[in-house]
Amino acid sequence: DETGKFLVLALYDYQEKSPREVTAKKGDILTLLNSTNKDWWKVEVNGRQGFVPAAYVKFL
């Protein structure tokens, strides 16, 4: 159920650099879980949760 969740689009490829991050490919649609940090947003992609740089994604 996606009610109340926001989707964001990956603008660039991002390769995770730590276990707390997730890899995303340009064009991926990610479920935004938390955007309270202006630099790192928590997302879910391909069943995995983790952080990506906020500058790499935008709201749909």
Score class of each variant (00 low, 15 high):
Asp1Arg: 14
Asp1Pro: 14
Asp1Met: 13
Asp1Gln: 14
Asp1Leu: 13
Asp1Asn: 14
Asp1Tyr: 14
Asp1Thr: 13
Glu2Arg: 14
Glu2Met: 14
Glu2Ile: 14
Glu2Val: 14
Glu2Trp: 13
Glu2Phe: 14
Glu2Tyr: 13
Thr3Ser: 13
Thr3Trp: 12
Thr3His: 14
Thr3Arg: 13
Thr3Lys: 14
Thr3Val: 12
Gly4Asn: 12
Gly4Pro: 14
Gly4Asp: 11
Gly4Gln: 13
Gly4Cys: 15
Gly4His: 13
Gly4Ile: 13
Gly4Thr: 12
Gly4Glu: 12
Gly4Ala: 11
Lys5Trp: 12
Lys5Tyr: 13
Lys5Ser: 11
Lys5Ile: 13
Lys5Phe: 14
Lys5Leu: 12
Lys5His: 13
Lys5Pro: 14
Lys5Arg: 13
Phe6Ser: 11
Phe6Glu: 08
Phe6Ala: 10
Phe6His: 12
Leu7Val: 08
Leu7Lys: 10
Leu7Ala: 04
Leu7Thr: 08
Leu7Cys: 15
Leu7Gly: 01
Val8Asp: 00
Val8Arg: 00
Val8Gly: 05
Val8Pro: 00
Leu9Ser: 02
Leu9Arg: 06
Leu9Phe: 09
Leu9Val: 15
Leu9Gly: 01
Leu9Tyr: 10
Ala10Ile: 15
Ala10Asn: 02
Ala10Val: 15
Ala10Met: 15
Ala10Gln: 06
Ala10Lys: 03
Leu11Trp: 08
Leu11Thr: 04
Leu11Cys: 13
Leu11Asp: 02
Leu11Asn: 02
Leu11Ser: 02
Leu11Lys: 04
Leu11Arg: 03
Tyr12Gly: 04
Tyr12Ser: 06
Tyr12Ala: 10
Tyr12Arg: 11
Tyr12Met: 12
Tyr12Pro: 00
Asp13Ala: 05
Asp13Phe: 10
Asp13Thr: 06
Asp13Tyr: 11
Tyr14Ile: 07
Tyr14Ser: 02
Tyr14Leu: 02
Tyr14Asp: 02
Gln15Ser: 11
Gln15Asp: 14
Gln15Tyr: 15
Gln15His: 13
Gln15Glu: 14
Gln15Met: 13
Gln15Gly: 07
Gln15Arg: 08
Glu16Gly: 15
Glu16Trp: 06
Glu16Met: 12
Glu16Pro: 15
Glu16Ser: 15
Glu16Ala: 15
Glu16Arg: 10
Lys17Thr: 11
Lys17Asp: 03
Lys17His: 08
Lys17Pro: 03
Lys17Met: 11
Ser18Asn: 11
Ser18Leu: 07
Ser18Trp: 07
Ser18Phe: 06
Pro19Ala: 10
Pro19Phe: 10
Pro19Thr: 09
Pro19Trp: 14
Pro19Met: 09
Pro19Glu: 11
Arg20His: 13
Arg20Gly: 15
Arg20Leu: 14
Arg20Ala: 12
Arg20Thr: 11
Arg20Asp: 12
Arg20Trp: 15
Arg20Ile: 12
Glu21His: 06
Glu21Phe: 08
Glu21Ala: 05
Glu21Gln: 10
Glu21Pro: 04
Glu21Met: 06
Val22Ile: 14
Val22Ala: 02
Val22Cys: 08
Val22Ser: 02
Val22Glu: 02
Val22Asn: 02
Val22Tyr: 01
Thr23Gly: 06
Thr23Ala: 04
Thr23Val: 03
Thr23Gln: 03
Thr23Lys: 02
Thr23Met: 03
Thr23His: 04
Thr23Arg: 05
Ala24Met: 15
Ala24Asp: 02
Ala24Gly: 04
Ala24His: 05
Lys25Leu: 08
Lys25Gln: 08
Lys25Glu: 05
Lys25Arg: 12
Lys25Met: 09
Lys26Gln: 10
Lys26Phe: 06
Lys26Glu: 08
Lys26Ser: 08
Lys26Ala: 13
Gly27His: 03
Gly27Tyr: 04
Gly27Val: 03
Gly27Trp: 05
Gly27Ile: 04
Asp28Arg: 02
Asp28Asn: 06
Asp28Glu: 12
Asp28Lys: 03
Asp28Gly: 04
Asp28Trp: 09
Asp28Met: 10
Ile29Met: 05
Ile29Trp: 06
Ile29Ala: 01
Ile29Gln: 03
Ile29Lys: 04
Ile29Arg: 03
Ile29Leu: 08
Ile29Asn: 01
Ile29Asp: 00
Leu30Val: 03
Leu30Thr: 01
Leu30Pro: 00
Leu30His: 01
Leu30Met: 15
Leu30Glu: 01
Thr31Ile: 15
Thr31Asn: 07
Thr31Tyr: 11
Thr31Cys: 12
Thr31Trp: 11
Leu32Thr: 00
Leu32Asn: 01
Leu32Gly: 01
Leu32Pro: 01
Leu32Phe: 04
Leu32Glu: 00
Leu32His: 02
Leu33Thr: 03
Leu33Met: 05
Leu33Ser: 01
Leu33Glu: 01
Leu33Asp: 00
Asn34Leu: 11
Asn34Trp: 08
Asn34Ile: 11
Asn34Thr: 06
Asn34Lys: 05
Ser35Trp: 15
Ser35Tyr: 10
Ser35Gln: 10
Ser35Thr: 12
Ser35Lys: 12
Ser35Asp: 11
Thr36Pro: 03
Thr36Gln: 11
Thr36Asp: 15
Thr36Trp: 09
Thr36Gly: 09
Thr36Ala: 11
Thr36Met: 10
Thr36Tyr: 10
Asn37Asp: 15
Asn37Val: 05
Asn37Pro: 03
Asn37Met: 07
Lys38Met: 09
Lys38Phe: 06
Lys38Arg: 10
Lys38Thr: 09
Lys38Asp: 09
Lys38Leu: 08
Asp39Lys: 12
Asp39Cys: 13
Asp39Gly: 08
Asp39Leu: 13
Trp40Tyr: 05
Trp40Val: 01
Trp40Gln: 00
Trp40Lys: 00
Trp40Phe: 05
Trp40His: 01
Trp40Leu: 01
Trp40Ser: 00
Trp41His: 00
Trp41Gly: 00
Trp41Val: 08
Trp41Asp: 00
Trp41Tyr: 10
Trp41Asn: 00
Trp41Gln: 01
Lys42Phe: 15
Lys42Arg: 10
Lys42Gln: 12
Lys42Cys: 15
Lys42Asn: 04
Lys42Gly: 03
Lys42His: 10
Val43Gln: 00
Val43Leu: 03
Val43Ala: 00
Val43Asn: 00
Val43Ser: 00
Val43Pro: 00
Val43Arg: 00
Val43Thr: 00
Val43Trp: 01
Val43Phe: 03
Val43Ile: 06
Glu44His: 03
Glu44Gln: 07
Glu44Ile: 06
Glu44Pro: 00
Glu44Leu: 07
Glu44Asp: 07
Glu44Phe: 04
Glu44Met: 08
Glu44Trp: 05
Val45Lys: 06
Val45Trp: 05
Val45Met: 06
Val45Tyr: 06
Val45Leu: 14
Asn46Thr: 03
Asn46Val: 05
Asn46Phe: 07
Asn46His: 09
Asn46Arg: 10
Gly47Phe: 05
Gly47Arg: 01
Gly47Asn: 05
Gly47Ser: 05
Arg48Lys: 11
Arg48Pro: 04
Arg48Phe: 07
Arg48Ile: 09
Arg48Thr: 06
Arg48Gln: 07
Arg48Met: 07
Arg48Tyr: 07
Arg48Asn: 06
Gln49Pro: 04
Gln49Arg: 10
Gln49Thr: 14
Gln49Ala: 09
Gln49Phe: 07
Gly50Asn: 01
Gly50Phe: 08
Gly50Pro: 00
Gly50Met: 05
Gly50Leu: 05
Gly50Trp: 06
Phe51Ile: 05
Phe51Asn: 02
Phe51Trp: 14
Phe51Lys: 00
Phe51Leu: 07
Phe51Thr: 02
Phe51Ser: 00
Phe51Val: 04
Phe51Tyr: 14
Phe51His: 02
Phe51Asp: 01
Val52Ser: 01
Val52Met: 11
Val52Ile: 15
Val52Trp: 05
Pro53Met: 09
Pro53Ile: 14
Pro53Cys: 14
Pro53Glu: 06
Pro53Trp: 11
Pro53Ala: 06
Pro53His: 06
Pro53Ser: 06
Ala54Lys: 05
Ala54Pro: 04
Ala54Gly: 03
Ala54Thr: 05
Ala54Gln: 03
Ala54Ser: 13
Ala54Asn: 02
Ala54Asp: 02
Ala54Tyr: 04
Ala54Ile: 08
Ala55Pro: 05
Ala55Met: 10
Ala55Trp: 12
Ala55Tyr: 09
Ala55Gln: 11
Tyr56Asn: 08
Tyr56Arg: 02
Tyr56Asp: 02
Tyr56Lys: 06
Tyr56Phe: 13
Tyr56Pro: 00
Tyr56Leu: 15
Tyr56His: 08
Val57His: 00
Val57Arg: 00
Val57Glu: 02
Val57Ser: 00
Val57Cys: 09
Val57Tyr: 03
Lys58Gly: 12
Phe59Tyr: 10
Phe59Gln: 09
Phe59Arg: 08
Phe59Glu: 09
Phe59Ala: 11
Phe59Leu: 15
Leu60Val: 11
Leu60Cys: 12
Leu60Phe: 09
Leu60Met: 12
Leu60Trp: 09
Leu60Glu: 04
